[in-house]
Design a protein around this nucleic acid. Structure first.
Length: 592
RNA sequence: GCCCCCGUAGCUCAAUCGGAUAGAGCGACGGACUUCUAAUCCGUAGGUUGCACGUUCAAGUCGUGCCGGGGGUGCCA
């Protein structure tokens, strides 16, 4: 049990002894660190329901508190706040408990249910660009957070590979190379052999073709109609198109594996819309038969509006009037698959906030259809857009999109330049320098993203991402690296960590208090689905360490017991930073 | 038209499900490197939390109405 939980129990007991709900005993971190470590606001909340004065309640509760070892003092302040100061010895014990715990005393969940994190979501045929960064980075972090807490967590990339874009690309390729076998309706694999094993296009080709054909479809109605037809034919199993689709898919996935790999983003499964293609026709048929879906203007829809809706709620479109499927169809079928085959209890969809309505519709439909029960959590984890310094969606100076690989290159170069400036870096082997530059660049990129609240649109400023100073990923790495350096030197000198003593220095005590909050922070991040909670706390841990570091010179400390205690303290700090950064998908170099 | 998100220091952003005196970073100004890595630390300046009402012991946070920005609103994803 964390220190905060223990205090909450103690205060809860006290409220209960006074004849009030123990819920009022909830203890939170103090907002006034100069006054207290923790505080309880329950007396104010309880006042109205029990008809007593807040201060009078606070005084009565304080008298009931029994915890001579844990609490140094408990005082009433202001209108009725209960300010709790933790005893130094118990604070040290709490940190010591972290030291001896593999999980830094963070408890696992009692009920390890299956959580599917759907993130990344790249369209087949498109090279990754900055727009994909947020989904990848936020999703990866959430996956790691839930996994660490003990959930059975599955990260699914969910590639967009079965919708209109594929039909559009087929049409564009046909217009460019009409003689390819894939387009010949008479082509008979039994007579002419199978389709070519070599892809007729590269991913660069597809990336170039995609904006061309989307523009054409917007301007040329008959081209759009052909794309719809191609989509329908593909979805209904036309051999040539399927063969072509396979090529598009393979060249796309090959490059996406490289791009996501470069980001250290790892998916457990590489499913996509196409994964459920066999389920689509039977699903629509069954939903029509059961009356869940109905025909409307030639299309098949599911009505999802509810009586108490305040907003317009258009029906979910299951098929177009030509019978082809949309991403609504595949998303719905995917829920059925995840619940049925993957035992999903919770699905977290880390997708651009602009798709909020779509997911609302799909989730409602899934419940109406019985694919998801009321117990199944389905959540759209939306996030804001990445803008340039002009406030508009990020573009390069030339006006094009910045590819993810190029972006990683830019921040890596920036990190390498910084390394060149540092004297101590000269002796590093070239390979290590490259590895450090990459780790530091990625840290800048990821922390820069994750430290923002996911819902807010944020400004992507390359200057800021390359500065590596202040509240940045590299700052956190740097703090951890300095600890590693201390521990190495201590080891060389034959010094080893020892029993944690009660803090004697202000900066030491502040650091300890920070560390023992770890469990609450991680659970809060999970509850809010907000990696920025982790990012903020990690920065505070690093800052507290830096202050301690400036103030207390560990290796020259003359009191060997205190020195050993400090070594333990910084070791716990390092492990904490390591965990937090790992939850953000950031690695720590050995030195930098 | 209707709905959703956002609006906080010069700039970029936080703010522990309603708590005390709204915090960081950058930028500005002034300090600290013969000491465990200065990618650091210390200090100063900087605010009517878009506006107005309301709810209550207490509002950046909740409600209503405006203003401004972004997005969505059945055959794109």
């Amino acid at each position: 049990m964390s220190l905060q939980q223990q205090l909450t129990e103690i205060l809860g007991d006290a409220f209960e002894a006074e004849g009030m709900d123990r819920e009022f005993g909830e203890v939170v971190v103090s907002q006034r660190p100069e006054l207290a470590d923790y505080q309880c606001n329950g007396a104010l909340a309880a006042a109205k329901s029990v008809g007593r004065q807040p201060r009078e309640i606070a005084e009565a509760v304080a008298r009931r508190v029994e915890a001579p070892k844990l609490i140094e003092s408990i005082e009433i302040a202001g209108p009725g706040f209960l300010n709790v100061v933790v005893a130094d010895a118990s604070l040290a014990r709490a940190v010591a408990a972290m030291e001896h715990s593999e999980r830094l005393t963070v408890e696992s969940v009692d009920d390890p249910r299956t959580v599917v994190v759907d993130y990344g979501g790249p369209n087949m045929s498109k090279a990754l660009h900055v727009g994909h960064l947020r989904a990848a980075v936020i999703g990866e972090s959430l996956k790691r957070i839930f996994r660490f807490l003990g959930y059975n967590t599955i990260g699914d990339i969910h590639i967009g590979d079965w919708g209109m874009p594929v039909g559009q690309l087929i049409v564009e390729l046909q217009d460019r190379e009409p003689d390819l076998a894939y387009f010949d309706p008479e082509y008979d694999t039994a007579v002419s052999g199978s389709y070519p094993a070599e892809s007729p296009v590269t991913l660069d080709d597809l990336s170039e073709m995609y904006p061309v054909i989307t523009k054409r479809c917007a301007e040329e109605p008959d081209t759009a109609e052909r794309a719809r037809q191609a989509t329908f034919d593909l979805q209904n199993g036309r051999d040539g198109y399927l063969a072509l689709w396979r090529h598009f898919h393979d060249v796309s996935v090959a490059e996406q594996r490289v791009d996501f790999g470069a980001l250290d983003v790892e998916f457990d499964v590489w499913y996509g819309e196409s994964t459920v293609h066999d389920r689509l026709a039977p699903m629509v048929r069954d939903l029509l038969a059961s009356g869940v879906a109905r025909e409307s203007d030639g299309a098949v829809i599911i009505d999802v509006e509810q009586p108490d809706d305040k907003k317009e709620m258009p029906p979910l479109l299951l098929t177009r009037s030509d019978g082809s499927y949309l991403y609504s169809t595949t998303d719905l079928a995917t829920i059925d698959m995840r619940v049925g085959d993957m035992d999903m209890n919770a699905g977290l969809y880390v997708v651009d906030a602009r798709q909020a309505l779509h997911f609302e519709q799909v989730f409602r439909a899934a419940r109406t259809a019985g694919y998801a029960s009321d117990e199944t959590i389905l959540e759209h984890i939306g996030f804001g857009t990445v803008n340039g310094t002009d406030g508009k969606p990020f573009k390069t100076r030339e006006g094009g999109v910045l590819r993810l690989g190029d972006l990683i290159g830019l921040v890596t170069d920036g990190a390498r330049e910084r390394l060149d400036e540092a004297r101590i870096a000269e002796e590093y082997p070239a390979e290590e320098r490259d590895a450090i530059a990459r780790q530091v660049g990625l840290a800048a990129l990821k922390f820069g993203d994750l430290s923002n609240h996911r819902m807010s649109n944020y400004v992507f400023d390359l200057e800021r991402f390359s500065s590596f100073e202040g509240k940045t990923g590299p700052y956190l790495q740097y703090s951890a690296v300095r600890i590693k350096s201390i521990l190495r030197k201590a080891d060389d000198a034959g010094l080893s960590p020892g029993a944690l003593l009660a803090p004697t220095v202000h900066q030491e005590r502040v650091l300890m208090l920070r560390l023992v909050r770890l469990q609450e922070v991680i659970y809060r991040a999970a509850d809010l689905r907000g990696p920025n909670v982790i990012a903020e706390y990690a920065f505070e841990v690093a800052t507290d360490f830096s202050r301690f570091y400036e103030h207390c010179h560990i290796l020259s400390e003359e009191d060997s017991n205190r020195q050993a205690s400090w070594l333990s303290l910084v070791e716990v700090t390092l492990r904490t930073l390591d965990l937090l950064l790992d939850l953000l998908g950031i690695e720590i170099p050995e030195r930098m």
